[in-house]
Amino acid sequence: MSLKVDHERCTECRMCYIVCRELDINAVYVALEPLHRIEIDLDACTYPGCTACLMYCPAAGSIVEVATGRSMVPPSPEAWQS
């Protein structure tokens, strides 16, 4: 299970990048190609163990679950009420 960015919804504010780096997980990175967009390293991301980026993302629908394609922003209660 992992997460990816939906670039049709992401506003590139980088809140997810800041949060992920603050936790020293560093799964969120700025890809040089294309367009310096935010991406999530599937190998480094610890979702669903960590859901921190979902709590601070302000762009509805911009982070989705890879396996299901389900939108995770805003996060559903099971993502944080554990």
Binding site: V19, T51, A52, L54, M55, Y56, P58, A60, P74, P75, P77, A79, W80, S82
Partner: peptide, 12 residues
């Protein structure tokens, strides 16, 4: 609140 305020990182 339901969408943006209450969701909180566990352990923050």
């Amino acid at each position: 609140c339901d969408k943006w305020v209450w969701p909180t990182m566990p352990g923050a």
